[in-house]
């Protein structure tokens, strides 16, 4: 294996790649393909949501109006802010600012935890109101705009099933992301990432933005059904 010694040796270049550019493109493409699988993974849930929302629109609106819009909006803002801190972390890595990189990663973790905390408050409220699907489920609300037309509690239960599955799966992804960032922050503090090699930061960033995008869709779909009535 002497042919690889011609180029300046980059410690990050793995043996089976010919050049750094090829390796970077490969890992970037790989990450995007992984995000494609994530799109399809959430796509299955969005499909279920679409089918049932179309079929039971009024009942879904009734159930949706019990969600806490204020907390939902705050959480959206928190998550968007965390996307900014992530992209700043990538920027810090690109420009070789190691302290800033660690700080932005830690900020992201804090924001992610804040999001989960708010989510926890919301979940707790569902338990109190018996809005958690299962034998104890109870729902008595009217279809928005039709005060004397009670919503079908069975369909409301389906809404909450989808609510928990979708936000729950989203939260699982956030927990994974937070773990990832904790690991990266640790490595970054030991100087593992330089402007020549920061692929893990970049890819974790892509993952986090994807999770953000999922929430960008979940928020209007779950919280904003027929709010005006």
């Amino acid at each position: 294996m002497s042919d690889s010694e011609v180029a300046v040796h980059n410690p990050a270049l793995r043996h089976h790649f010919a050049e750094v550019e090829q390796q970077r493109n490969a890992s970037s493409l790989g990450m995007w393909l992984f995000l494609v699988t994530e799109v399809m993974f959430f796509g299955g849930m969005f499909c279920a949501y679409l089918v049932y929302r179309t079929a039971h629109f009024g009942d879904f609106a009734a159930a949706s109006s019990t969600l806490d819009l204020k907390l939902g909006t705050i959480n959206t803002a928190v998550l968007i802010l965390s996307s900014l801190t992530v992209v700043m972390a990538v920027w810090a890595a690109q420009t070789g600012k190691q302290k800033a990189l660690v700080m932005y990663l830690l900020l992201t973790i804090v924001l992610g935890l804040a999001f989960l905390g708010v989510k926890g408050v919301e979940y707790a409220e569902k338990f109190e109101k018996h809005h958690v699907p299962g034998p104890t489920f109870h729902f008595a609300g009217a279809i928005p705009g039709h005060p004397d037309h009670p919503a079908d509690p069975r369909h409301a239960e389906m809404f909450f099933s989808l609510y928990f599955v979708m936000t729950g799966m989203h939260a699982v992804h956030m927990i994974i992301g937070i773990g990832l960032f904790a690991f990266l922050a640790f490595k970054a503090s030991r100087g593992a990432y330089t402007p020549a090699y920061f692929t893990p930061i970049e890819n974790a960033g892509l993952y986090w933005h994807f999770v953000d995008i999922i929430w960008i869709y979940l928020f209007p779909l779950l919280y904003l059904i027929d709010r005006h009535k």
Partner: peptide, 14 residues
């Protein structure tokens, strides 16, 4: 609006 936000995130943040 959600799609607009997603496009912004994809184009610039990603």
């Amino acid at each position: 609006i959600a799609s607009l936000k997603a496009v912004l995130v994809v184009l610039f943040f990603m």
